[in-house]
């Protein structure tokens, strides 16, 4: 059995009277690709937000590499090597692709002194190589804000990889990406997992993508964990089919 890198145990999160996550327990194995699916409003992004410290949880525990992180701040969690990307892309729009990448180099401490250095040649090489990896080499000198939504998604993914995370939470990585490019993106996600050893935890609405990508999938519905299993098991689970298609 694989080592568990992220342990979510009995996590609940509510906003006023709206329960977004209720008593959710999920284990994410290290070095694997794990999927998280569910209809709109089922609480997937809220759960990601709870894991990376965007908001406090009401109850339960979240452990990353055995360390309790549920009360840590966003930056502290990121410095542990646990990052997320967003449904709506978050890039630095007024800078070009290369600068977006250089900014994303990892910082694992509070010491400011290394910040007073110019980027090294190695940093440029790594930035260029990752931009090439996601297919953005020809766009690297354009302002990030002028890229298409799909290209911004790819840039955001490359920025995350530049940060050398051990685990990456991807929120709908293929949303807004041209269907002809999706196969390429699946390959890149798999390569990031295999070549860079990044554990991926992926929210995805495109069933073809997630079934192709993930080794294990968890399904949320109405804020609760509905089902967990391999892609085959999930595809054949009547509760999942009902949650997606409605109980008629």
């Amino acid at each position: 059995m694989s080592e568990i890198i992220l342990e979510i145990k009995n996590v609940s999160k509510s906003y006023g009277g709206v329960i977004a996550n209720q008593n959710i327990s999920i284990n994410v194995p290290k070095g694997k690709i794990t999927g998280l699916i569910g209809p709109n409003g089922s609480g997937k992004s809220t759960l990601f937000g709870s894991v990376v410290g965007n908001h406090p949880i009401n109850s339960g525990t979240i452990k990353y590499k055995g360390k309790e992180i549920s009360h840590m701040r966003v930056g502290e969690i990121a410095r542990l090597g646990l990052l997320r990307t967003f449904q709506q892309t978050r890039i630095y729009g007024e800078m070009d692709g290369v600068k977006n990448m250089l900014i994303s180099r990892p910082i694992r401490h509070h010491n400011l002194m290394p910040s007073f250095h110019r980027p090294h040649k190695d940093d440029y090489e790594k930035a260029n190589s990752l931009l090439d990896f996601v297919g953005l080499s020809s766009k690297k000198h354009l302002l990030a804000g002028s890229l298409s939504f799909g290209q911004q998604k790819l840039l955001e993914f490359a920025m995350a990889l530049m940060n050398e995370p051990e685990m990456l939470l991807l929120d709908e990585p293929t949303a807004g990406i041209n269907p002809t490019l999706i196969n390429g993106l699946i390959d890149r996600l798999k390569a990031a997992n295999e070549e860079f050893g990044v554990t991926l935890f992926v929210i995805e609405h495109n069933m073809r993508v997630i079934m192709n990508l993930a080794e294990e999938i968890h399904v949320l519905a109405n804020g609760k964990l509905l089902s967990s299993g391999s892609p085959e098991e999930i595809q054949n689970d009547p509760r999942v089919i009902e949650a997606y298609l409605g109980g008629h």
Binding site: V52, N54, V74, G75, A78, R79, L83, R84, F86, R90, I91, Y92, G93, E94, M95, I103, S104, P106, I107, R108, M159, A160, N163
Partner: peptide, 10 residues
Amino acid sequence: DDEDKAESMG
């Protein structure tokens, strides 16, 4: 450009 993003990158 995006302080929340910068924070979320550590």
